[in-house]
Design a binder for these strands. Structure first.
Lengths: 234, 234
DNA sequence: AATTCAAATCGATATTTATCAGTCTTTTAC
DNA sequence: GTAAAAGACTGATAAATATCGATTTGAATT
């Protein structure tokens, strides 16, 4: 199970200054307050970090590893909204609604997560308008991302959705055309809204057509132009 | 075309106090400032209020009528995100991103829209943290709504999606089981992510099964329990 | 009332996607 | 090192959904 720990890479919130642009707005005192409410927990691959429906008391920042953020849909199906990387602030959705988590987060990797008390965070929002503004910026960007995702999920067919998924992973998550996929085939399916079998089929097709090179979880995008084209034509 | 006007129901922002809970947080002076930047425009049914891709200079509040908020997807298809009612603040998504509209808004009715300058609004956010907090609340709720919509669009089949659409219209838009639909059949399809023909078919099916009573645009939900059941089972 | 045009409708068909059953591979557990 | 389990894969089939063509309806206009 997860256990408490102090890691080298995140000794206190003041260090996070450089890594999380949003926090650099805060005064030393505000950072200190956040730091006092925070603690770190390590998770093993596959472990659940947040569980949808449970009460939301803390925000989350990964300091190492990757995680998937997903909502639990109909008949135990998961819909992966996005992949979480270190130094993003997670859990905003539940901040002001009903203090419940509206999605689950599970580690895709051995990860370290830093938890910050929601109340401490709210206090900073209330007292530092520039920080609040930055937070709004963050929320609205996620809103726009949501729109794009909805279009992809509802209007594109499988090839287009897989293309969108691959482009997302390469450009936003791994920031490289060549990466070691942390997602299982089922995860890829849950990210693109199709059955596992269909996801496997399309990936294989892309592989056979020379658009990607896929061997197990080693993935390389060979023809990103064509991937873009497939994404656009749906 | 749309023309300038002063209407009885919205003489100035101070009156909006009662109607828009968020604005009641503002001081008289802040309201006055918003009021000075604002103007009203009337739109006829079908007219475009915001067009996706154009530059975003104003926020929007409908004072009369209804409108659809939609994104332009692949191959000229529309995806209706939600229906706009009077006294909601619209346009947040573009506030802090790239000053472009990321969706379009079109009148479903003869509507009156009040435009508020984005800069005036931003200023209030920067100076009034409680207002900023309220704004964040608003954004995060929309985020949660987005998740539900994504699940509906990607994991439910047509019956479930139409059920979701009808429940949404009855509970959130018209707040009545019995209403005069402002949406065309194509709009219903765009709201639920399917072809027009399919939407017509499912609606007819629901009608034949006694779940709804549908005559042209007069719609009455007869069995909302079953509609809920259909929504849940997908 | 006749005309016109857009919206709504419906049956037949084609396409897309999921499901299922079975095999193969890789990792995990003892 | 071997057994077991989980994940990956594949072809065949079934189910869901879109598309197409042809009417019909209804509202708006002459």
């Amino acid at each position: 199970m997860a256990k408490f720990s102090k890691t080298e890479n995140c000794k206190n919130c003041i260090d996070c200054n450089n890594r999380i642009p949003m926090l650099s707005i805060l005064s030393k005192q505000e950072l200190t307050e956040l730091n006092e409410s925070r603690f770190e927990v390590k998770f093993k691959t596959g472990e659940t970090i947040f569980k949808q429906g449970t009460s939301a008391t803390h925000l989350l920042i990964l300091t190492t590893g990757l995680a998937k953020l997903y909502v639990e849909g109909v008949q135990d199906k998961q819909l992966i909204i996005r992949i979480i990387k270190p130094w993003e602030i997670i859990g905003q959705a539940s901040l002001y609604f009903d203090n419940r988590h509206h999605y689950s987060i599970a580690a895709l990797d051995n990860t370290t997560a830093c938890f910050i008390e929601i109340d401490a965070f709210k206090k900073v929002i209330q007292t530092n308008p520039l920080f609040a503004e930055e937070f709004i910026k963050n929320c609205t960007q996620k809103g726009i991302f949501s729109f794009e995702k909805m279009v992809s999920l509802s209007q594109k067919q499988m090839h287009g959705r897989i293309a969108d998924g691959l482009i997302y992973l390469a450009s936003k998550v791994y920031e490289d055309l060549n990466f070691d996929l942390h997602l299982s085939r089922q995860d890829v399916a849950d990210l693109t809204g199709m059955s596992k079998d269909s996801a496997i089929r399309i990936l294989k097709e892309f592989h056979n057509e020379g658009i990607i090179d896929l061997d197990g979880r080693k993935l390389k995008i060979l023809n990103s132009k064509q991937l873009e084209r497939i994404s656009e034509t749906g």
